[in-house]
Design a protein around this nucleic acid. Structure first.
Lengths: 317, 317
DNA sequence: TAGTTGCATGTAACTAGTTACATCAGCCGG
DNA sequence: CCGGCTGATGTAACTAGTTACATGCAACTA
């Protein structure tokens, strides 16, 4: 029941703890001694305590990741990118899901700090920024995803470009009046709308009709109102894609003939359903975020990625 | 840059580190002293080192979760259940995604052990069992999900019942010849098939035509062969739902008229697409797994959950 | 007034490792 | 034959906390 410590291994091998530590971490040890130590460690099932290692090093080797919504495919690919880079650097990854609750986000960032993570990738609202900044000042690199803040690294999408890309595709498809379901007032949403407005104007199309939706329950009503005057519905957040799509199909509308549909973020069913999307390079964004953590650049870096259109026909006239 | 320690706080407050520790963890301290300490901690931005705390306690308060496939909705709900119970117990959750690689699974379990997690929830193959068992012997409760192993707790679905439920629904729907896409040779898959065979026999239906599929690329061919002689296709793993559904729709087949379709695990798009599924109570399973970690029962517990049918019409004749 | 009690606080040992420095044996050269 | 060098190992200090025990002081009792 009592945990095997380095002391136990040392006693069984007839050496000091220093020698055991040297064997395990590659110091100067004579081969016969090293063999004895390895045998003792094996026999006792010794598993070195990473916590103690970290406390001496001043920080752990773990990379923390605070995710606001694990169910989003965007974040899943982001995590895959982070995992990949972390694994290549021998760092475990500690994921925390916050379910979009500001309280949990702040609490998780604080917890990660207390765990003395090597660095932190944060997808969260402003609530946690102060603490993150303090961490950054203490030498823990913090990377914001999909948002920027003074003094912190960030990896984000060119959201204005995403909006313009939407507008360009809608124009290409011959749509004339666009209704938008937007997911809130966060900067990403605001900028995508802004880009959409700009793009529509440049293509000589009228400004979009916009509805702002808080949660999935409000989507059906919102879409209903948009259908009165528009021949295309776009959605500026991947989170609401299911709900918007359902609101359209439940009314018996077929895409693209009855209505054009375009949304954000690629996902598994998009191919099957023939839904056109504006995709983010989420895997690469994850890699970039992890690289920032690992390389610890002195000055706050802001990396911006470009969106791409994946046309599948849900918008073509 | 240098981290603020309890010693710094003590010095600024003019007390000993013991007093600071007592203030922060609720010991016997006079109020004026406590106020001074809190003020100093606040002023210095002190963040207690959770690693050091844990090393003294012998283990950390973190609950580890090794997930083989984060992209599966089953695991997402499972995690939500774990998170909920962990949060109620003040335990952070450390998630690790293994991308179905046996090497990564073993490595992650080892890493969790070295982090001295309070307990571990594992969704992985047998590779990691030995290490998990060693952890269990050392007093770290380990809970297997969707699999059982001697000496370890487990939380799983009654997979035979799931198969029988499938058979019963297929019979109810008037299907006469069933083709099955199975996801491999893991126990869950084997038992679901077994239940399906039993159920079909009981309902006087012929035995199913079975194809075993390794990955998504093989699905299309497999489905093609099944379509020759069957009027329903069932899939015993949620992981392949997208691919099987695509294989059917790509052939222009309409459900339920041209072909019956029934699969495992509920997911966001199932409602929109009208796909009938056998659902697992994944959230409750996550809660149960976390409860086992928290309560540390002496004897290995095996908790089995019952599946439910969610009929949406993709199977009705 | 001396003794008892009890609260508030400090001292120091403890957790499980790492590592700078000391030590010691064996070997070589002068 | 002895000093110096080198390679292997041990000793002990260090990391940042927690906590058992000791101590000191004040108030209350006899």
């Amino acid at each position: 029941m009592k945990r095997v410590t380095i002391g136990d291994v040392a006693a069984h091998a007839g050496v000091s703890t220093a020698t055991v530590s040297r064997v395990l971490n590659g110091g100067l040890v004579a081969e016969p001694t090293a063999a004895k130590v390895r045998a003792a460690a094996e026999r006792l099932g010794y598993s070195p305590n990473a916590l103690t290692k970290s406390i001496f090093a001043g920080r752990s080797s773990t990379i923390g990741v605070v995710i606001r919504d694990l169910s989003s495919p965007f974040y899943l690919d982001l995590i895959r990118g982070i995992d990949e880079v972390a694994a290549a650097n021998g760092s475990p990854v500690m994921l925390a899901n916050t379910y979009r609750s500001a309280d949990r986000e702040a609490a998780q960032v604080r917890a990660m700090d207390q765990q003395r993570v090597r660095g932190l990738v944060i997808t969260a609202d402003e609530t946690a920024d102060d603490h993150a900044r303090r961490m950054a000042e203490n030498g823990t690199p913090c990377v914001l995803v999909a948002r920027t803040a003074p003094g912190l690294h960030s990896v984000s999408l060119d959201d204005v470009a995403a909006g313009r890309l939407m507008a360009a595709h809608l124009a290409d498809c011959g749509r004339s009046q666009v209704g938008v379901v937007s997911g809130g007032t966060r900067p990403t949403q605001v900028k995508r709308l802004e880009g959409l407005r700009q793009g529509l104007a440049e293509h000589g199309l009228p400004q979009p009709e916009e509805v702002l939706v808080g949660n999935e329950d409000e989507v059906d009503g919102a879409v209903g109102s948009l259908l009165r005057r528009n021949d295309a519905v776009v959605c500026t957040t991947g989170r609401l894609t299911v709900a918007v799509h359902l609101a359209l199909t439940a009314r018996g509308l077929k895409m693209p003939d009855d209505i054009g549909f375009l949304t954000m973020d690629d996902f598994a069913w998009a191919g099957t359903l023939g839904i056109s999307v504006i995709a983010q390079p989420s895997y690469e964004m994850g890699r970039a975020a992890a690289e920032l953590v690992v390389s610890e650049p002195a000055a706050p870096a802001r990396i911006v990625f470009q969106p791409t259109l994946i046309a599948r026909g849900s918008c073509e006239c």
